[in-house]
């Protein structure tokens, strides 16, 4: 089963994404900020990171930047999830190294399609 790490400081949002991802057949783990997420990523292999931007301790940009520089996890696809819709916000995510960008709240179909593409399916 493919594993997804949800990185968000809002419990409710994590819960929402967890339900969504689990319904698609993924195994889900959670982290409340970038620091915690890096810690988890160093201990386990994930197939995808779903990352919020605004978080205490370490924000989503920094987390993805770190991931891309860390040999063991640098190839893991990452989706940035944000509330902002502007082009410059998207670019900031891509600049950090995110492979995709979603606007909160994400739509079921969209996230279903793209997580499938990014992970090659849940199985």
């Amino acid at each position: 089963m493919k594993k997804i790490l949800i990185v968000d400081d809002a419990t409710t949002v994590r819960m929402y994404h967890r339900q969504l991802m689990e319904s698609l057949g993924y195994h889900v783990e959670e982290a409340g900020n970038g620091v915690e997420a890096l810690e988890k990523a160093s201990q386990d292999t994930y197939d995808l990171f779903l990352v919020d931007i605004n978080m205490p301790k370490m924000d989503g940009y920094t987390f993805i930047e770190e991931i891309r520089k860390t040999p063991a996890v640098k190839a893991t696809p990452a989706i940035m999830i944000s509330t902002e819709e502007t082009e410059s916000d998207r670019d900031k995510a891509y600049e950090a190294g995110a492979n995709f960008y979603f606007i909160k709240p994400v739509r079921m179909e969209a996230i279903q399609t793209f997580t499938k593409l990014l992970t090659g399916g849940a199985e």
């Binding site: 930047e65 891309r68 520089k69 190839a75 696809p77 891509y94 190294g97 492979n99 593409l117």
Partner: peptide
């Protein structure tokens, strides 16, 4: 492609590898 445009020397490998993986998945 857009994401790769932002590559710099210390994260280039990570970016390239992640795109390679995505190719294989998608």
């Amino acid at each position: 492609a857009r994401m790769l445009e932002f590559s710099n020397s210390d994260d280039l490998e990570g970016r390239v590898d992640s795109v390679e993986r995505i190719f294989n998945h998608a």
